[in-house]
Amino acid sequence: MSKHYTKEHEWISIAGDIATIGITNHAQEQLGDVVFVELPAIGKAVTKGGDAAVVESVKAASEVYAPVSGEVVEVNKDLEGDPALVNREAEGAAWFMKVKLKDKAELADLMDKAAYDKFVAAQ
């Protein structure tokens, strides 16, 4: 299992050809209190860089873009009733969706943890 990060502050955990996607702890800190998460329909085909989900804090709505292309096979229903889970466990229990990867080569563009931490520190 490998974990990757994007400049849009998402994390992607890979197990076989399934990518579990969420937003990073840094992202939830920046957003503040999360009050609503809109998740894609199961079966939806997402394209790298395209819309995948929406996360709303008290202040604003933010798009979550798909970090990889593929088909949504599962979404985290817990976030509908408890959006604040994103603030508590952004990089664990508050995963957003699982996507069946279309092209593993897309993972090559993503950052590892060390690179992501450096990216965040530089911002």
């Binding site: 503040g32 209190d33 009050v35 804090s57 008290v58 202040k59």
Partner: peptide, 12 residues
């Protein structure tokens, strides 16, 4: 200041 460390919900 837009918020303090406890966040907007708690402040509200």
């Amino acid at each position: 200041p837009v918020q303090y460390p406890t966040g907007i919900l708690t402040e509200h």
